[in-house]
Design a protein around this nucleic acid. Structure first.
Lengths: 210, 210
DNA sequence: TAGATTGTTAATCGATTAACAATC
DNA sequence: TAGATTGTTAATCGATTAACAATC
């Protein structure tokens, strides 16, 4: 399913923020919002907001603005939040456990079906009803359960091999918390969360603002 | 200390990646590297790499390239990794514990001096030698220990108030994991890690690559 | 109808890439 | 010296902002 014109990454990364504020508005029973009001909330310009949304369709109405409920639903669809994804998580250390235990992700449609670790001491421990298994079991599990997303919470050592193993067994998207750049076929979607890089950026900016 | 020309955010966000690869090269005893070789590693163009680095100085040498050790050191200085920062962390839930337990941050010069939570059950528990205290103790702790960085790992509810409390007591930078945009004076540096937004982006891209 | 606000085109701004003289 | 590669200027590309006709 190829879209007419490719939407730029800059636009895509703003969508979740729109969605977040629209969820807030919906929770507060606000029925409509103009690009100008949304601009105040998000700190994006009204012009940019209208441009962004028009990549996907004309969701507004002249003289009125946007219907909050409709736009929220549309953005949810655009972001793929109306679907459910099955995931496995590898690396049940501090961060892996935190991710596995976080209820919010399941609410958004991401269900962690399996958790794997190579440390024998971790095997058998349950995190939210899912028992940690040996990482050697991962490949079979992915195949048998048609898993689409892999979450990598291992150290950088071994992360590339884990990712390749995931891809070999049919995974199409990876949420990577390991501080490494995975080299994978380009049809595989990789979203990195590099906490170290985020912290270093904070460090740079601190120095600059002195 | 105002730099001549303001370095763009796009450049700043690439610096940690340069630093990461230079650390690898250093570990592998590689003495020099050209912008072209660095381009292969980082997937940035050689031209962009040279432009980026020249925001901060002429670290290279014509006909030779860059000395790995020198450039690594310079980038560390630019990123402020030669300093030590004192931090407090608020919200010792799953994610907060993971951050507090992660050794890597201390190695980079970020020391978590205090951990706070509002849940009475958590108080007194130790995470890597730091005892969790009641969040009411936070303000005094920040003042008395000259804390510079606040790490917010609370739910979005209350995150704004915590941040304001931190700022009131002298904190100048915030690493924010709460899914909210903190409204703070502009001299305060805020670096967000919005895991939900990252996951939503992955979700969008998955759909697109089908 | 008059007022408001969108959708969209055009103008501007900024970031990336290309090119090459300088120089090690 | 000849070859390599930087630092930097100029050209290109893409993203943001401004403006306004369309229209609810």
């Amino acid at each position: 399913m190829m879209k007419n014109k490719k939407v730029s990454m800059a636009v895509i990364r703003r969508l979740p923020k729109y969605y977040r504020y629209l969820t807030d508005l919906l929770d507060n029973d606000i029925k409509r919002i103009s690009s100008q009001e949304l601009s105040k909330l998000t700190d994006f310009t009204a012009s940019q907001i209208r441009q962004d949304l028009n990549n996907f369709g004309g969701f507004g109405q002249q003289g009125y603005g946007y219907n909050v409920e409709d736009l929220h639903k549309e953005l949810g669809r655009i972001l793929g939040l109306d679907k459910t994804y099955k995931a496995v998580l590898v690396g049940a250390g501090n961060l892996g456990q935190a991710i596995a235990n976080y209820r919010g992700f399941e609410d958004s449609g991401f269900k962690i079906m399996g958790i794997f670790d190579k440390n024998p001491k971790m095997i058998g421990i349950k995190l939210r009803d899912v028992e940690i298994e040996d990482v050697d079991e991962m490949s079979n599990f992915i195949k048998e359960n048609d898993i689409e997303i892999g979450i990598i919470c291992t150290p950088k050592e071994g992360s590339q091999e884990i990712a390749e193993e995931m891809v070999k067994n049919g995974i199409s998207g990876i949420w990577n918390f390991a501080p490494a750049d995975l080299k994978l076929p380009e049809e595989i979607t990789v979203e990195n969360v590099h906490l170290n890089e985020s912290l270093f950026t904070l460090s740079y900016l601190l120095k600059e603002n002195d």
